[in-house]
Write a protein that binds this DNA or RNA. Structure first.
Lengths: 249, 249
DNA sequence: ACACAATCTTATCAAATGTTAAGCGGCCCA
DNA sequence: TGGGCCGCTTAACATTTGATAAGATTGTGT
């Protein structure tokens, strides 16, 4: 952890990505409460499960994973990935303790909000409270689809669906769809997120590339044929509840 | 659906199970809003994904699944199971539309609360709002562990962990731990919930029985050796945030 | 430029899981 | 009461995925 906290609140807060679910008006009240910034190096732990948290984080840049370590501690599973504009652990506000670790997968910058300040704001603002509640429910929806994906899709479709989600979420976070994203995750990260072994992920990646769907190299994801990718991964973005989308559920 | 709605609110509402997270004081305000009762037969759909909901359900009896149908519609995956005392679709209150179907796995009885009435109550009660928010966050925690379980545990441990969860949750719902639970789910249901095929579930069930962990027959789950079952399933109940438990996370 | 570590890639073999098919038994309903 | 459906069980075989190992490649710090 690089505690470059304390310096005056920078103006790098953009209401972009999932945070757009908070209306401009409410953002005016909420945004200024993010006084601190922190930076984490790749592969560092941001918070451990069971720790009592008095603050939550908004991800400004990088990729952060929610990770559940297995008993033997040899291995852990990613149960969520967060991108720019996502709240990382807003659920710690009502829950206080989390059931998983929070890990910086790449170098990551976050903005910090103290629960005390947030409580004071939310106690007087029912509407904003409900917006933030909804934000955590979208996370839950994504969890459900991760469970579905990793339970009932075989390797090839599984990874195709996974990349489809990343494409859709990053497009929303960046404000526009792209053919190439710089995300900086490794094949091992993909393995942790999809429940496959790194070796098998490598096999599937080759298949996806040869099939003309997408390719990933040195942290760069390239969408070669989006329609094909979606078809192979049986992908329907409705569950993402993306802001500014009126997708039918 | 058996629309036996409209008759005077029965007094069958017990604050037992997960609903205990709502304090007795707040339950006095919330409980009376559940004016209607509905009963559903086994294997019937309670609500379809995408439908707009103006009410939520509290499960009084039976087992209900949240189910995500696959594109081909041949098959669907269970992403959650709800038991007595669980809110089934409280997340529909902020979200209005759900991303999954809600299905009665066994015959099920629910109590209905209208969102309009709930909103009126919650608009004036920040504390209760936060309790209900927390309830939906516990669901999210369980989702994460389903993702972890079905992603990173092999068949045997997976099913052992699954039954461990059911044991723990039903014990909380019934108020005491039991050696036998009548749940009435089929091997196909277990397959839908664990991401295995029915045939493989059958194999694993035989192994669990022969190993002396647990057995399931005609809808009756029998815990033969709880400690052993937990060990085999690498089970730690902290993620369930059970009421009246101070489990360390 | 070099050494070192991490990541990626490929091969081979083993184990877990899926698929298909068949038979059995209970239960509901005509 | 008989037929048919549903759920359970087992078997044989196919496919997917995991495990292990080795080498190639890339990146990084000195």
């Amino acid at each position: 952890m690089t505690p470059d906290a304390g310096h005056p609140a920078p103006s790098d807060l953009k209401r972009k990505g999932m945070i757009e679910h908070v209306s401009p008006h409410h953002w005016n009240a909420l945004g200024p409460l993010f006084a601190e910034r922190h930076t984490y190096a790749a592969n560092t732990v941001i918070s451990r499960r069971g720790a009592t948290l008095d603050h939550s984080l908004l991800l400004l840049d990088g990729v952060v994973a929610r990770s559940i370590p297995r008993a033997n501690m040899q291995h852990s599973t990613f149960v969520a990935l967060q991108f720019k504009g996502d709240f990382v652990d807003l659920h710690a506000f009502p829950l206080k303790q989390l059931d998983h670790d929070v890990v910086a997968v790449t170098a990551a910058t976050v903005a910090v909000i103290q629960h005390a300040a947030l409580k004071q704001l939310l106690d007087g603002d029912i509407e904003l409270s409900r917006m933030l509640w909804s934000l955590t429910l979208v996370d839950a929806s994504i969890h459900r689809h991760w469970a579905m994906r990793n339970s009932s899709m075989r390797g090839f479709a599984r990874v195709a669906n996974f990349f489809s989600e990343i494409d859709a979420r990053l497009a929303a976070a960046l404000g526009q769809q792209q053919d190439t994203y710089t995300i900086g995750i490794t094949q091992t990260d993909i393995a942790d997120a999809t429940g496959l072994t790194p070796v098998h992920v490598n096999r599937v990646l080759r298949d996806l590339r040869e099939d003309g769907c997408c390719a990933i190299a040195s942290g760069q994801l390239t969408i070669m044929d989006r329609a094909r990718l979606h078809r192979r991964g049986d992908f329907d973005p409705a569950y993402l509840y993306l802001p500014n989308s009126d997708a039918e559920l």
